[in-house]
């Protein structure tokens, strides 16, 4: 499954995270976040990172990985010029 072109960057990120972790949309009152979202632990994090890389056709260098902990932070990182 891929995102539609009308989706916001945040929606695309959320979609990628849910696909990576194989979870349903937890709803807006439960933000997706490393450490609190089921499965988003140290192992799940790299699944999330790889799905994000596929979705946005990019490659995150290792030093950025600790910053990609929730939708807001990921969006901020993706919006930064390379």
């Amino acid at each position: 499954m891929t995102s539609s072109p009308n989706e916001s960057i945040e929606q695309r990120i959320a979609g990628a995270v849910m696909r990576a972790l194989k979870i349903a949309d937890p709803g807006s009152s439960t933000p997706l976040r490393m450490g609190s979202t089921p499965g988003w632990d140290s192992m799940g994090h790299m699944m999330v990172v790889m799905e994000l890389e596929k979705e946005f056709n990019t490659r995150f260098p290792p030093y950025l990985l600790p910053q990609l902990v929730d939708v807001e932070a990921i969006a901020k990182t993706l919006r930064k010029p390379a």
Partner: peptide, 10 residues
Amino acid sequence: AVQAAYQQGF
């Protein structure tokens, strides 16, 4: 590659 990247990144 994946595990090493995680270990290195964090």
